[in-house]
């Protein structure tokens, strides 16, 4: 079991990042290949407060989670990577089967 955890964590991370990148590409009409984990959501990708709610709902739909929007803070939205880290904690809490798959 211990031997498989790092691999599972990497799988989950990859899936979450892939989901976020696809959702961002849809929301911003950018080429997903130009979006990386270091991409900043507001400054580089041009996300704004009018598109962020739609982005969150797409992530919810794709990963089967529900955000507590009051718990979302500015630092979660700095980059694709920071948002992915937050989303991963929500997946582990809410969809443990997906996290361990």
């Amino acid at each position: 079991m211990e031997n498989t955890t790092p691999g599972n964590a990497a799988d989950l991370h990859g899936r979450v990042v892939g989901t976020i990148v696809a959702a961002l590409a849809e929301a911003t009409r950018l080429d997903p290949r130009t979006i990386g984990e270091d991409s900043t959501l507001f400054d580089e990708l041009g996300l704004d407060s009018t598109t962020v709610l739609g982005l969150l709902m797409t992530i919810e739909e794709e990963l089967g989670i529900e955000f507590d929007t009051d718990s979302l803070e500015q630092h979660h939205f700095e980059s694709v990577g920071t948002l992915a880290a937050f989303v991963e904690t929500q997946v582990v809490e809410q969809v443990p089967d997906l996290a361990e798959a």
């Binding site: 959501l41 507001f42 400054d43 996300l47 704004d48 407060s49 962020v52 709610l53 969150l56 929007t69 979302l72 500015q74 939205f77």
Partner: peptide
């Protein structure tokens, strides 16, 4: 109402 999410340098 709708969730309010105002982030970034706005």
């Amino acid at each position: 109402g709708l969730p309010r999410l105002a982030f970034g340098s706005d």
